[in-house]
Structures are given as structure tokens and as C-alpha cells.
């Protein structure tokens, strides 16, 4: 890639344009130099696409929580881009235990200590966790 071929495709999506990453490119005489780049449409597309997939899924989950099919745990896990194994590691529990907590009926019976730990992992007040979707 030549110095003048380094793409400068600005992308504002989720603050991406705040970073001007460093690229390595060749000068006219073939020697390497560093060039700051605003981004490249190719990777901008990939970033946006990955986020849109996450947000779309999150919307579906939110609807299911409001519908009483899933507990807020499922929502906040996805909101924090976590997967079952990561959340299980944070909570020091088995994956099947976390999965059980996805059931609204089980969630309603969770003790205060467990709820506090979930709230800490999600970095929100316990109240916001318990009341979500009501």
C-alpha cells in the first residue's frame, strides 16, 4: 500500500472517527512511513454490521423480557455483549445455573445476594435490574 492509497474514510458511527489509527505504507521510493488513517469503508462496514447484529438481537430480547418470556438477566447479559460462559465466570456459577435465571419465575425468587452480584457485574443499581421490563 502506497502512502497516497491509505484510505481516509471517516465514519462517525459510535465514535469511530475519534481514533486516527496508525498505518504503515510506502513512499514514492519504496521506503516505509507511518500514516494516520480516518478509517476504511471496508472495515467501517464490518464494524457497523457487527454492532447492528448485536443491537437487533438485543431488541428481540428486550421484547421477550417485556413479554414475560425472559428475565432481565438475559437482557443485561446481551446489553454488555456477554455470552453465557463469560457471565458464568463473572458470577462464579455454572452456565446451566445462569440459564435457569433467565426464567422469569426463577428470577423472581433470587435472593438479594445473588441479585447484588448480578448488579455489580452489570454495573447498575439492583433496582434497575429487578424493575427492568416491568
Amino acid at each position: 500500500m502506497k502512502e497516497n492509497e491509505v484510505p481516509q474514510d471517516k465514519e462517525d458511527y459510535k465514535g469511530k472517527s475519534q481514533i486516527h489509527k496508525l498505518m504503515y505504507a510506502t513512499k514514492e521510493d519504496g521506503s516505509y512511513t507511518q500514516v494516520n488513517s480516518e478509517g476504511w469503508e471496508v472495515e467501517n462496514m464490518a464494524t457497523r454490521q457487527a454492532w447492528e447484529a448485536v443491537l437487533e438481537e438485543l431488541q428481540e430480547i428486550e421484547a421477550r423480557v417485556r413479554n414475560g418470556e425472559l428475565s432481565p438477566i438475559a437482557y443485561f447479559m446481551h446489553k454488555h455483549l456477554m455470552e453465557l460462559p463469560i457471565l458464568a465466570r463473572h458470577m462464579g456459577k455454572w452456565q446451566w445455573q445462569i440459564k435457569r435465571h433467565f426464567k422469569p419465575a426463577v428470577f423472581r425468587k433470587l435472593d438479594q445476594d445473588t441479585l447484588n452480584r448480578y448488579a455489580r457485574v452489570f454495573n447498575i443499581p439492583v433496582d434497575s435490574l429487578v424493575r427492568f421490563g416491568q
Binding site: 465514519e11 458511527y13 459510535k14 465514535g15 469511530k16 475519534q18 481514533i19 464494524t47 457487527a50 454492532w51 455483549l81 456477554m82 463469560i86
Partner: peptide, 9 residues
């Protein structure tokens, strides 16, 4: 301190 766009796990 990083923009949200990059903050995946």
C-alpha cells in the same frame, strides 16, 4: 476512554 465502536469483549 475508547469510543464505543471498538468496545467488544
Amino acid at each position: 476512554y475508547l469510543p464505543e465502536a471498538f468496545r467488544f469483549h
